[in-house]
């Protein structure tokens, strides 16, 4: 078991019974994890987190959030550090970054390992066509 999951379990966040829909989301993200395709699914994940605060569409984060977060944190840091146009990356992955930021604070990831996020960076308004 990963350290982050162990940490998550100590937070005593209740895990409610999942609805059928939430179960389907859970299965979906678990299979992404198993396939090792997290990076390829990042756009899809951003889209999902646009409409849902957490990955299983729950009120509070679940273990699946924590497991996926573990894979996404290094990817997000890489995205931010490897670009000249930070604003562009923020705009494209704003929902993933919002979610990463929530989890890194929840799990008290050491500040040196965190994704550094400027919460007040002015981003273009997102419009759904």
């Amino acid at each position: 078991m990963s350290d982050l999951i162990t940490k998550f379990k100590t937070l005593s966040i209740s895990s409610p019974a999942l609805s059928r829909e939430q179960n389907a989301f859970n299965t979906q993200w678990q299979s992404v994890l198993k396939s090792g395709q997290v990076e390829q699914q990042l756009d899809q994940m951003n889209l999902f987190l646009r409409d849902n605060t957490f990955l299983v569409s729950t009120l509070q984060p679940t273990e699946t959030d924590v497991e996926v977060f573990e894979a996404v944190l290094p990817l997000s840091k890489q995205l931010v550090s490897s670009t000249k146009d930070v604003k562009d990356v923020y705009a494209k992955y704003r929902h993933v970054f919002r979610w990463v930021d929530y989890l890194q604070n929840l799990l008290a990831v050491p500040s040196g390992d965190q994704l550094t996020l400027n919460h007040d960076l002015e981003l273009p308004r997102e419009i759904i066509e």
């Binding site: 605060t53 923020y90 704003r94 970054f97 919002r98 979610w99 930021d101 929530y102 604070n105 929840l106 996020l117 919460h119 960076l121 002015e122 981003l123 308004r125």
Partner: peptide
Amino acid sequence: LDTQLNLRTFILGGL
């Protein structure tokens, strides 16, 4: 409000 929530889960940020 939408701008405030761009990179924040809750209005004042936080958990």
